[in-house]
Nucleic acid binder design. Sequence first.
RNA 1: GGAGGGAUGGCAGAGCGGUAAUGCAGCGGAUUGCUAAUCCGUCACGGGAUCAAACUCGUGCGGGGGUUCGAGUCCCCCUCCCUCCGCCA
Length: 425
Amino acid sequence: MHDLKLIRETPDAFDKGMAGRGLQPQAATILDLDVKRRDAQTRMQVMQSRRNEASKEIGKIKGQGGDATALIEEVQSLKDGLAAAEAEERECAETLQSILESLPNIPFDDVPVGADEDANVEIRRVGTPPEMKEAQQHFEIGEALGQMDFETAVTMSGARFVLLKGQLARLERALACFMLDTHTGANGYTETVPPYLVRDNAMYGTGQLPKFTEDLFHTDEGFWLIPTAEVPMTNIAADRIWEADDLPMRFTAWTPCFRSEAGAAGRDTRGMIRMHQFSKVEMVSITHPDKSVEELERMTDCAEGILKSLGLAFRTVVLSTGDMGFGARKTYDIEVWLPGQEAYREISSCSNCGDFQARRMKARFRTPGEKGTRFVHTLNGSGLAVGRTLIAVLENYRQEDGSVAIPDVLQPYMGGADRIELPNR
RNA sequence: GGAGGGAUGGCAGAGCGGUAAUGCAGCGGAUUGCUAAUCCGUCACGGGAUCAAACUCGUGCGGGGGUUCGAGUCCCCCUCCCUCCGCCA
């Protein structure tokens, strides 16, 4: 949600932000509506003022047993004009609201301007992709191990689902536990187990609604399945006034995520890169407005730290203005090296949303000694997508004999095992 | 699933057709002074005015309709919360 006052004050900066998103200038339309709305409001208020005054008078006269017929008729005569002004004011306000809530957030000035991912800028590369004689894709490896079963998943759920078994199932759990332990330990996040089903207002708060319903799953009872734990964890701050001392709040959770992938038909159809259901360890920070810029660096560092611990090569890119998500002002994507694809693929996305979500969900804070409240800033980042991390481990740690080595830091979580062997047949 | 109760400012809490009490917290000020007390003001959002204020008008009692000169209050619809019973991990 955008701040109308800000648009009034700096319409050019607003349009520049929208241009970066590939949108036409919006400020003129918005401000025109704003002027119309205020004009209608002013006319409305003049009539309301007269009505209130007369009504008070009527009350007084009637209380004294007098005749107020003339005044009553006057108020009656105001009705049509008042109703018209009210309708106009309301119509403008609703239109304004629907425009403001459907426009994406304004990118920071240091975000590269561009239409799509081609304009993203790589800012660092960490680690070296391993030399491999014959790299395989994760589904080849997983199926050879006999522990990654797409066929069975299809029979019960259709495409974009997978059944993991045995040590691969455990590897998923091991990865998630390792990530959670790292974030709740060294990184200072508070672990949560949030709801996986939420209502409209929560989805509106983080920006999935009203525009992106087609990406979501919905139940007959009116719940939405969370596409990321960002939704329930960010909404922890919703509709409250916090104390400045409460900030920053840092939450993490390991949850399933549900996405319809409506716009992704035909993409990543093989394997478990793009699933309707996947698990992810998410980080959310609720910060003071002055701290969100540095918090994004911190959060990205936390995500990268997991990859470093796992010994996986990756690169970090800044998304261009056209490639960023709806609510973000700046986003870092972390892409892990997948030998089977000979490509870096997204495994984490860390975003600073500024006050965009906070405004939608009325998440505010108060500072002692200051009057009034301000909106908090919200950030979210994957730390990491567990399914894709599992893929990365399989492809990067596959041995020439077909077995898969287990990274050192995961071995305690795998019952001490140091590799996953091919089945004896 | 059945039966009830409720939603009012940051929080607590009155009001039942005639300008939204009061308390606590916060903010501004005054005063006395010793680990704070007392008093006054302020205390949501929006419009107008202003360099900015003072000022002024309006809206706001979960949301939306209706009745009325006038609705927190009466009527209708919806949402959410709570309690009890039933069922259940």
